[in-house]
Design a protein around this nucleic acid. Sequence first.
DNA 1: CTGCATGTTGACTGACCAGTCAATCTATTC
DNA 2: GAATAGATTGACTGGTCAGTCAACATGCAG
Lengths: 241, 241
Amino acid sequence: MSATRPSGGGAEATSPTGASRPGSSAREAGAKAAPDKRRLILDAAVRVFARQGFHACRVADIADEAGVAYGLVYHYFGSKDEVLDTLFLERWGVMLELIREVDAEPLPVREKLRAIASFIIDSYRHDPDLMKVIIVEVTRAANSFGQTHLAQIREAYELIGRIVQQAQDDGVFKSEIEARFAAMAFYGVIEQLLTGWIFDLLPQGADEFEKAKSIVVETVCGGLEVAPVSDGTTSGNTLPR
Amino acid sequence: MSATRPSGGGAEATSPTGASRPGSSAREAGAKAAPDKRRLILDAAVRVFARQGFHACRVADIADEAGVAYGLVYHYFGSKDEVLDTLFLERWGVMLELIREVDAEPLPVREKLRAIASFIIDSYRHDPDLMKVIIVEVTRAANSFGQTHLAQIREAYELIGRIVQQAQDDGVFKSEIEARFAAMAFYGVIEQLLTGWIFDLLPQGADEFEKAKSIVVETVCGGLEVAPVSDGTTSGNTLPR
DNA sequence: CTGCATGTTGACTGACCAGTCAATCTATTC
DNA sequence: GAATAGATTGACTGGTCAGTCAACATGCAG
């Protein structure tokens, strides 16, 4: 299984930064000039995976949805798995980059976390099917795919954890709750809200999405921030560093 | 699909200890209890599903793990799906009952939510494989099974939501955050912590489990409670910071 | 026009596995 | 001990589907 095809190429490169651009720049040399069937297949796969689930759909369904021949899927991708891999890595890479950028900027924790929550929620708003696929088929699929991409997923948690840690060092968040755990809690709230929308258990709409961003920040930060005024007791502050 | 077997009834009995018997008839104090192959198969299935995943394992794997013949699985269960259904319904039923009991008791919200978090986390501690299967294969499987058991899952969210609503009506929680959303946030934190353990992204151990319970309550309640000091009602007693 | 590379097609196959079933075993009853 | 009912066995089947492949199409270069 999973015989890695060289032809597929795709997102295997170590740099997650590069969300493989469709054709734009690659066109220049004239070597390759395709109507970007590859992208067509990926987009179709998102729809099919979201509708039927990865395991329940056939490769033929993807090809049909994309309006291409069955075999073409195997021209661009080494396997059915690789299609899903590519979708996940593409999107997850963008998210990791965003988190790194946010972390680098000099903002208060609340703002940083809000930016991350906003990004994820907006990702869902912009392409619910893709987020559904990523959450349902990868993020939680402890076996097959989750295992494969554990490193990527872990990376996200660690980056968020670092932001929390920083806030603790700065004395803005209390240190009783380990940063790792807090990061998981934060991400968990976001993912659960998306799940609620995916399953149609929560109302959707521009308003709801905006409210959700506040909820995420309010609930998590509310429980993590040191008491506002009355808590002058810890005068000395936690020692820096 | 899922023609419910007469025998398969499942979760209605709800005994926390979790032991259902097939030959309900004159077996009570008699000779050695039958090896209860049905239970044997269910327990084996938990291990196999946790290890290989529902889709990746074969029915033969379950039979082998249980040490019974292939056909016996189909004597007790109508299909492979039904095995998973049964496992889920059994456990989820116990949880729903627990939540209802907790809700009925006259406790402060924090206590109620802590009891629920404790139950779920202890469930994981007691049988990690089962919780892994439920979370990975059912709770998040938007397609196949999630759809089938949406009503059960929704029920849990609604019960928790009702507890939050009550707290809001009592003025303990602020009402700016809709109860449904708060309930999802609460459950999301729990499930994400379990996921962290399942994926080995968070350290495990008795200590960690206890800390986790506090984290869940702290983070979520901390963000939902109305401003602390002014509200000297209800037995005072603010937790020491 | 010829030759080569790459894009595109869809019929085919080989493996895999859920579910069936007839036979066999065990316990209970009269 | 014969009859009945359920428990248990495992070989077999029918359908499904991921992945292959040989052929055809298109574009470009010399």
